[in-house]
Design a protein around this nucleic acid. Structure first.
Lengths: 344, 344
DNA sequence: ATCGAGAATGACAGCGCTGTCAAACCCTAA
DNA sequence: TTAGGGTTTGACAGCGCTGTCATTCTCGAT
C-alpha cells in the first residue's frame, strides 16, 4: 500500500505484464488468461490503483461524464432524479454533472438550442438526461441530435416518439386512484386540473374521466376545476367545490399534492372533517403529503428509478446500440388517512 | 465556423503562432503582446474553439472538477447549495460533481474517512465542499487533509477552526428574531429546540436566551421544549406548550420551519388563532413557510450564497493561497403573517 | 511431427494540452 | 554603438491511458 497514486505502468511492472494487458483486465476486455487476470487484479488491489479519468478520457475520447440538464422549478423532483442518476453512474464508473439551464425564453426554439449547444460545447459529455419540461423541447432535442450526443428524455409528454425515454403512465395512475375512490363508495368526485401547459395535466384528467366513465358515473362540469399545480389554486378550487356546505362532492382528486394540501386546508377551515366528510387525494407523493394532517393519499412516482434508468440506458454497455425505446416505470398508489374510510 | 471540434493546434496554425502562445492567451497568462492576444482570441472565436477538459486536466494534473459531498436529509438545502456552487463553477470554468455519501455509521470516524477516501480516489477533484453534518466530521476532514485536497466547510458548528468555511451567524439570527418578537410586545415566549445532535440547535437556543436576558425576560423551563427538527416533534411540543388553553405563551419560536408548521397545525386544531392569539415563527425559510396559512415569519439563510462562496474560495485564482478564513454571510429576517400584529 | 487458427500478449504512437527551458526580440543606459 | 535586462515566443517532452497492429503462444487436427 504505497502512498502515492499508482499508475497502470506501476501495476504492469509489478505484475510482470504489459500496460496493455493491465488495461484489458481493468476494462473487462476479453482474451486475457484467467491467471493473468487474477494476478493483475491482485496487484491493482494491493496498490489501490484507480484509473485517471482524464487520461482515460483523453485516450478513448470519452468523458465518463453524464449531464443532467434541467430547468425545473421543483428542487424536490430534480433531487430525486439526481439521486437515481448518481447511483447508476457509480455503478458504471461514470459521474454526473448537473447543468441547470436558464432558458432565455420559453418558446424560442433556436435560442434554447443555442444555450444547450454552448453548454455541451464546454464540457463534452457521453450522454445527456433531459428532465421535463426540457424533454418536450424540440429545439433542445434537435441540438442534441445535431451534436450526436446520446440523450434520454424523462417523462416526455408526446407518446411514442422514437427517442429513448423513461416515463410513467399518468393516465393509468389517475385511473387507478379514481377507481380506488369509487371502490370506497364515492359517487360524486370533484377533480382539480393542473397547469394547462404541463403535459401531465391532460393525462391525469384523462385517467380520471376514464375511470368515471367505466363506472358509469357522471363527471359534472362544475365539479372539475382548473388549477395550476399551486397550493393557492388548490385553495381556490376547493372554495368553489365546497361552497355549498350541505351538498358537495364526497371526494376531491387534486392533480398534485400542493393543490390537495390547499383542499385540506380549506376543508379544515370550513369545519369539514377529512376523510369522514370528504376524501382528498393528491398526486406525486411530495414530502408535504406526509407532513399534512391527515396524511395525503397520493400517487408515488418512480422518480428515483427514472433517473437511474436514464443513466443506465445511456452508459450500460450491455444495453448499448439497442433501438430507442420508451420505458414505462411502475408507479404506486399510496393510501393514507386523507382518503380512507375506516368504517367499512 | 467549421463543423468539427477545433484544437489548439488548429488555432495556432491559423493565427500563425505556436501552440504554447495560444495556450497562454487562453489561460490569461502574462507576457503576451496585445496584438498577438487579440489575433488569437479572434481566431479562437471564429473556430468556436473550446478546450478539451480531459487534455487540460491530464497535462496540468488538475481536473477542473469540484465535488459537493453531502449526507443531508434535506434535499431542499442541498439543492440551494448546489445551485450556488454550480453558478460559481461556471464563472470560473469548473464543473460541479455532487457526491452523496451514505455514511456507514455515524460516529465511526475511521470508516467515514475511508468512504471519503475511496470516493475521491476514483475521481480526483480540485476541491471539495462539505455540507453539514459532514462539515463537523473530524474523520472526513482528516482524510481530506491527508489527501491534500483543498476543501471548504459549509456551516460548521465549531467556531474558528483554522479551516476555510462559510457560515451564517445562527446566534445573531435567533437573537434578532427574538428581539422582533419582544418588540411586538411579547413577554412570554415558548421555544422549541432542534435536534440535539445538530450544531445549529445550541446556537439558535443561545441567541434566544441572549435576547430574552437582554430584555430582562424570564425563560421558563417548561416553555422550552426539546424537538428534533421534525414536523411531528413540533406538534408534540406545541401540544405541551398549548395544553393550558387559557394560559400559554403568546408567541412560540420554533428552531425550524417544519416544527413551526407543527405548531400552526396544532393551534388551528385547538382553535387558537394565529397570529392574533399566538405568534409563531420558524427558521430556514423553507418552501413550506409560504405554503402554510398563515405564512411563516422565519429566517432566510444565505444558502445559495454559501454554495457560491465555497466554490469561489476553492477555485478563484485571485483568492488562492490566502490564509484559511471563516466567512460569515448575511441572513435575513422574513416577516410574514404568522407573527405580525397588525393592530399596533 | 506439423500446420494453422485463434487466443494471449506486447510495442508503440498519440489523444490535446501544459510545463520547462531555451531562443529571439526589444528597449534602455552607457 | 553595444551590453544587459526584461519581454515575447516557440520547441519539445510528456501527463496516463487506449487503439492498432504485430508478435508470440497454445492446442486440436492432420
Amino acid at each position: 500500500m504505497r502512498a502515492m497514486k499508482a499508475t497502470i505502468t506501476d501495476v504492469a511492472k509489478i505484475a510482470g505484464v504489459s500496460m496493455k494487458t493491465v488495461s484489458r483486465v481493468l476494462n473487462n476486455e476479453p482474451n486475457v488468461a484467467a491467471k493473468t487476470r487474477e494476478k493483475v487484479l491482485a496487484v491493482a488491489a494491493d496498490l489501490r490503483y484507480s484509473p485517471n479519468l482524464a487520461a482515460k478520457g483523453l485516450a478513448s475520447s470519452k468523458s465518463y461524464l453524464v449531464a443532467l440538464v434541467y430547468d425545473n422549478p421543483s428542487p424536490y423532483y430534480i433531487a430525486k432524479i439526481q439521486a437515481g442518476a448518481i447511483d447508476a453512474c457509480r455503478k458504471f464508473g461514470y459521474h454526473l454533472v448537473p447543468e441547470p439551464l436558464q432558458l432565455p425564453d420559453v418558446g424560442d426554439e433556436e435560442s434554447q438550442a443555442e444555450t444547450v449547444r454552448h453548454l455541451l460545447h464546454r464540457l463534452p459529455v457521453d450522454g445527456v438526461i433531459l428532465t421535463p419540461p426540457l424533454s418536450d423541447s424540440p429545439g433542445v432535442i434537435k441540438a442534441l441530435e445535431a451534436m450526436k450526443i446520446p440523450f434520454v428524455l424523462i417523462a416526455p409528454s408526446g407518446r411514442e416518439n422514437g427517442f429513448n425515454a423513461v416515463k410513467m403512465d399518468d393516465i393509468q395512475a389517475a385511473r387507478e386512484m379514481t377507481e380506488f375512490l369509487i371502490a370506497q363508495g364515492h359517487k360524486s368526485i370533484g377533480f382539480i386540473k393542473g397547469h394547462p401547459e404541463h403535459s401531465a395535466t391532460a393525462l391525469r384528467y384523462e385517467g380520471f374521466r376514464d375511470a368515471m366513465a367505466n363506472a358509469r358515473l357522471t363527471v359534472h362540469s362544475h365539479e372539475v376545476i382548473q388549477g395550476d399545480f399551486s397550493f393557492r389554486s388548490g385553495v381556490n378550487a376547493a372554495e368553489a367545490l365546497l361552497s355549498d356546505k350541505d351538498s358537495h362532492p364526497s371526494a376531491i382528486f387534486a392533480s398534485n399534492d400542493d393543490m390537495a394540501a390547499g383542499v385540506v386546508s380549506v376543508a379544515s377551515r370550513l369545519g369539514i372533517i377529512v376523510p369522514d366528510e370528504l376524501s382528498v387525494c393528491g398526486f406525486d407523493d411530495t414530502p408535504l403529503a406526509k407532513i399534512l394532517f391527515p396524511q395525503l393519499t397520493t400517487v408515488q412516482q418512480p422518480i428515483y428509478e427514472m433517473g437511474f434508468h436514464a443513466v443506465k440506458t445511456l452508459v450500460d454497455p450491455t444495453q448499448k446500440s439497442k433501438p430507442a425505446e420508451t420505458r414505462n416505470l411502475e408507479f404506486k398508489l399510496v393510501v393514507r388517512d386523507s382518503a380512507l374510510i375506516q368504517s367499512r
